[in-house]
Amino acid sequence: MWSINFYRAFYLVFHCAYTIFEYIHTALKYINHKIVDFGHEFLPTTEKNNCIQNQLNKIRTPVHLTVLLGHEEPCYKDLVNLILWCMATRISFISFYDHKGILKKNEQEFQYELDQRNLKEDHVIWHSHSDSTYKNGFIGKKIHVKIITEEDGRNSVVNLTKNLSLTKNRDFSLDNISESLRKQFEFPNPDLGLVCGETFNLYNYPPWQISVTEFLTIKSLRNITFSSFIEQLVRYSKCEQRLGK
Rank of each mutant, 00 (worst) to 15 (best):
L233D: 05
N155F: 13
R222N: 14
S180A: 12
I139H: 08
S180D: 00
T26S: 13
E107V: 13
N57V: 04
L12W: 08
N81T: 02
N189T: 07
S180W: 03
I230N: 00
N136K: 03
T149Y: 01
L12A: 11
Y76M: 07
N155K: 13
R222T: 15
L202W: 08
K48Q: 11
K238W: 01
I177H: 04
G244K: 04
N223K: 08
H25R: 13
S92E: 15
N32S: 14
L114V: 00
H129C: 01
Y203H: 12
Y134F: 10
I210M: 04
W85M: 01
I210K: 10
T26R: 14
F10A: 06
V145T: 02
K34V: 07
L43K: 12
V36W: 03
P206K: 11
E72W: 04
E72V: 01
N136L: 04
L202N: 03
N169P: 06
L12R: 10
F110Q: 07
D98P: 10
Y23W: 00
S211W: 12
F6I: 10
L103I: 08
R235F: 15
S95H: 08
G140V: 00
N204M: 00
P44L: 11
K219A: 13
F200W: 08
G39T: 04
V63C: 15
S178G: 00
K162W: 08
E231F: 06
D78R: 04
Q108G: 12
L164F: 10
Q111G: 12
L166T: 14
H71T: 10
F138M: 01
L166Y: 12
V13D: 05
M1K: 07
I59D: 09
S128E: 14
V234R: 09
E231V: 09
A17G: 07
I94A: 11
S165K: 14
